[in-house]
Computed example of a mutant assay.
Amino acid sequence: MRLILASASPARLAVLRAAGVEPIVRVSGVDEDAVAAALPADADDATVVEALARAKALSIAEAIGSDPDLPSTAVVIGCDSMLAIGGALVSKPVDAAAAHAQWRSMSGNSGRLLTGHAVVVVVDAAVTAEAVDHSSTVVHFGSPTARELDAYIASGEPLAVAGSFTLDGRSGWFIDGIDGDPSSVIGIGLPLVRRLLAAVGVDIAALWAANPTGD
């Protein structure tokens, strides 16, 4: 069964490739603000990231059959990450000023990164099964100097990632430690995805066979 990654994230793609899987990549284009706004006002953080991940996966799954470049039978994975810190849930910063503000609240503190994961199985262009869950990892942030932070934000990296940081990039210098799954912090938690795949009847051996990396 071919794997489709419903994400433009190069970090998620790199994690899957390093784990022996070469997915088809499709970007969902889901209106994240609209999905979040449609949730109950008292929806907790986990509900938000799970709903966003599911919306992304379903967007691609439901396009199978109308897109001649996609296989009619596949498993689609969608993800969404947000950082809970200081009583707020933050995603990607909208600009450099927002990234600076996020880092002022993160510096020397700890936050909880939540990543929603959704797996949707499509057989003959029809959705037949799905499983959704989230991971939660505590991230302990160091305290970059003003010069270091200015240089980091000027690189543009924090504008492309939830919480203005990523474990596997330039901000790795400023992460003192994590409590949880490193791959989930990068954007896609392999242990959780494996459990979700098992729940819909797909094992890793089958993914390796159907989606070889060519190594």
Rank of each mutant, 00 (worst) to 15 (best):
V193Q: 10
A53H: 04
H140P: 04
N109H: 15
A125D: 12
L83Q: 03
I85K: 08
A99C: 14
A51E: 08
I175Q: 08
A63M: 11
F174A: 06
P23D: 01
I4V: 13
G111N: 03
V132Q: 07
L13W: 06
E22D: 14
R104D: 15
V48M: 02
S81P: 11
G87N: 12
K92Q: 06
L113S: 02
G163P: 06
Y152I: 06
D215R: 10
S183C: 11
V30N: 00
V202W: 02
V94G: 12
V48H: 02
L89Y: 01
S143K: 14
A88E: 15
Y152A: 05
W173N: 14
A198Y: 04
A61N: 02
A198V: 04
A34E: 07
I175M: 13
R12N: 13
G65W: 14
T145C: 08
A101S: 15
V161I: 14
E32H: 09
A46N: 02
S110Q: 14
L83Y: 01
L197M: 08
V123E: 12
P23F: 00
V127T: 14
S136F: 02
H140V: 14
L16R: 01
V48C: 04
W208N: 09
P68C: 11
G214T: 02
R2G: 10
G111L: 02
V132R: 10
D203Y: 11
V48Q: 05
L39F: 04
L113G: 03
L83W: 01
P23H: 03
G169R: 00
P40K: 07
E32N: 02
G201T: 00
P158N: 04
A96H: 10
A38T: 02
V138N: 05
V127H: 10
R147P: 00
V76R: 01
D80F: 11
D168P: 00
A125F: 00
S7M: 10
R12F: 03
I60E: 02
G87D: 07
A84P: 07
A209W: 07
V161H: 11
L58P: 08
P191N: 05
G87T: 06
G180E: 00
A6Q: 05
S59M: 08
Q102G: 10
V30S: 00
D45W: 09
V76K: 00
R2F: 11
I85A: 14
W173G: 08
T47V: 13
G180R: 01
V127D: 12
T166Q: 04
